[in-house]
Design a protein around this nucleic acid. Sequence first.
DNA 1: AAAAATATCTAGCAATGCTATTTTGTCAAT
DNA 2: ATTGACAAAATAGCATTGCTAGATATTTTT
Lengths: 188, 188
Amino acid sequence: MGIAERKEREKGERERRIVSAARMLAERDGWASVTVRRLAQEIEYSQPVLYAHFENRDAIVGAVALEGFGELGPALRASVQPSATPSEAMKSVAIAYLEFAFERPALYEAMFILPTGLRFAKSDTPQVLRDTFGAMLAVITPFRDDAELATETLWAALHGLAELERHGRIRAAFREQRVTQIVAMFSA
Amino acid sequence: MGIAERKEREKGERERRIVSAARMLAERDGWASVTVRRLAQEIEYSQPVLYAHFENRDAIVGAVALEGFGELGPALRASVQPSATPSEAMKSVAIAYLEFAFERPALYEAMFILPTGLRFAKSDTPQVLRDTFGAMLAVITPFRDDAELATETLWAALHGLAELERHGRIRAAFREQRVTQIVAMFSA
DNA sequence: AAAAATATCTAGCAATGCTATTTTGTCAAT
DNA sequence: ATTGACAAAATAGCATTGCTAGATATTTTT
């Protein structure tokens, strides 16, 4: 039955092309430009084919978001030098988080802002999501007993910093100082 | 020249009806349901009339957002009891902020998430926005020299708490505890 | 009363997400 | 090789969107 396997392989391959086309277009022209028609054109298939892979447009955004989580966790971990002190580690993670948000805005949008149909903080939370959470948890644990709660709070603070700055609500020039404030508070 | 004035009055009145229809529909059915056609129907004028008042749909969202800022500032100030200690005051403001976000989700969305074309943290920032910022600044000043910076950071933290919870990224049941954490950190 | 300016509407464009229907391609059984 | 069943994919279309050009009605000015 190698035929069925080949077909499955081809379908998987096509799915990857859809997701990476979506990501590329979003990063280049913004999510509003990511239309099902344009994606179809990009992968050289007709429009309805995409609906054999994804229930709707939101699900495509969700697939890109998942890719993003697959990268954010490792990026946070990689930012920490082995020789770093606990509070240096926390600062590295915080800065890496914001860099991720600002350097891949479309990816970040898919992960945290756009409707995607993904589930979180529930029993069915995918492993990549737990991993990302874990990367932040790791640098907080040395400082706090309520590490899980504190991770949620730190995450929220970083997310807020990223979003308000992206929308021009707070002064971009003071980013570093705000991060310093936050980290100082959490590592006290 | 009472005629011109009457016309201006009528135009202003109509504009208010557009904005409040938009707000009502958004709060009831979500922003996706706020279409220019539906608004036109609501105010009993044809569609192009709305473009005599607002450049485009985003500008209507922006008008609702401005209304929101006009209410958020006072709501934050009103939450503080005259007898409150400085740290009680800060906690009241933080809780009032989150209540605002959760009880008027569509309004909050217009203010902080959707594209609106409004400008912030710039010289042309409208007074209502400065007022809202001022309400937070007031409760931070007793604790910090760098009050303006700290206000930005606190604001970001609260915004992040609201957004991550709204998207189901963090556990709703622990909202109170996260607020307590944040306030403790800023009033230390 | 006629002309000019203003206000408003009708009708339509191009684009969107999504889907019913038709066509094309693949493969096994004859 | 031919045929018929099944799966894959394309065409064509629906309903909806934001927005606008062009036609019509309504005031205001002359």
